[in-house]
Amino acid sequence: MVKKPKVASWYDPIIKAHGTPRPLLRNCLVAFIFGGALCAVAEYFQLLISLIPGISDKDASSIVMVIVIALAALLTGLGVFDKIAQQVGAGLAVPITGFANSITSSTLEFKSEGYVLGSGCNGFKLAGAVIFFGIGSAVVVALIELILGIV
């Protein structure tokens, strides 16, 4: 592991004095409201879909998720997603929209290098981390529970 270099001690206060701070309060408020509203709208449609006979609550949840993913992919293709994300930050990145956008943007971007070597090989360039750590940690958690016999 490479140790992260430090800014020269005399220069550190200068660079800090001139940096523009991130608008933390505004970013947090916008992320909370936008992300919350997105989940609220999804919840509304989930409840609506679960009224259809033969569709369980779990199915309704999956259906809404697929619709949200499709919309995120479409907005990415239209070139709108990144513009909204600049404004709402984690409000779009934390919900599954962020996951869908990371795959769609990579697939789209590397299309110029071909569908196989470009899109195929690079599609999970960013989302790969989520899959990697998600599966890795889930296996560990499940193994621990199996060993402890609490499954």
Binding site: N27, G89, L108, L126
Partner: peptide, 17 residues
Amino acid sequence: ERQFRYPNEYGCQKPPQ
């Protein structure tokens, strides 16, 4: 953008500096 940062359509919030 695609070489140094992220795919062009990736929704990453950039800081003011």
